[in-house]
Write a protein that binds this DNA or RNA. Structure first.
Lengths: 145, 145
DNA sequence: TCTTGACCTGGAGTCCACTCCAGGGTTTAG
DNA sequence: CTAAACCCTGGAGTGGACTCCAGGTCAAGA
């Protein structure tokens, strides 16, 4: 039986949804360890390497920074003893996410208030200073572009 | 009675939480219309201008882009007839926010799964391939740094 | 008078995560 | 033999929203 097939960068890009440029850039930045090359110097991804890229794509999609991804890959190299530190890293990512969520919720509330404010003004036929709005202006108010 | 006091850029920065550099940059980019100047060329913000900056700071905090802020200020100049278009702009901001929220929720779910995965492995005393982990390694697993 | 401090302008630099490009090699189909 | 695909490297460019800086003006205080 032949060894597990290796894939080209195009295959891995397709598989993971990362662009070829991104794959090359991850390698240059040391986020992804150097991938094997064919005789002609083209990247050939082994199954292990493919799986690693898939995991990195998943971590990226959790909003992790590339710096954290790099740390995570380093921990993978340390085996099972680093499980605790991996969890800690993931929890840092969770905290980042929680902060972003809080930020969004806050912004959302503020925005709804502001939208409500304008809708009230329009409904009441008033301008921002509380003065009534002329009829011919009111017909313009529902225009959206 | 004297006219309402004008403020220095330092005051307005303090009031709005925007940096002096940001205030100057908003003006340069045309997000904020040119502010009045004193005889010596220093910015003097009138009450109206202060309120406008406060509003911009609030819009910024809703995650609006500076481009949208610029549009919004332009609509302010058109008076009550632009209320509808202002609402439309705010609704665009709302959609951006909704998209970001969806993104975060998705990321959050993925992250919880991943954290759960590692916690299970540690609890079960297994490494990623399902092989048992040696006792002396297990004591390292709870280490977080 | 000298210094300090607040402010001015225009331009350059920063961060992040890519993305694009020039210039070159190799492999495959016709 | 040649053209088209595919890939390589190192370096430069992008976008958004600032942030920093050099070099200069101006007013008030010791």
């Amino acid at each position: 039986m032949r060894e597990t097939q290796s894939s080209s960068i195009a295959d891995v890009a397709e598989l993971t949804g990362l662009s070829q440029d991104t794959l090359r850039w991850y390698e240059r930045e040391g986020i992804l360890p150097r991938v094997g090359r064919s005789a002609s110097g083209h990247r050939r991804y082994s199954e292990r390497e493919r799986d690693l890229v898939l995991m990195l794509a998943a971590l990226r999609d959790t909003g992790m920074t590339t710096e954290m991804m790099k740390e995570f890959v380093a921990l993978l190299g340390e085996g099972a003893a680093s499980h605790g530190r991996r969890v800690a890293l993931l929890e840092r990512a969770r905290e980042r996410l929680a902060a972003k969520r809080a930020e969004i919720e806050r912004a959302s509330t503020a925005l709804e208030l502001k939208i409500g404010h304008y809708e009230e003004l329009i409904a009441a036929g008033l301008d921002c200073d509380g003065a009534p709005v002329a009829e011919e202006v009111r017909t313009l108010q529902t225009a959206r572009e």
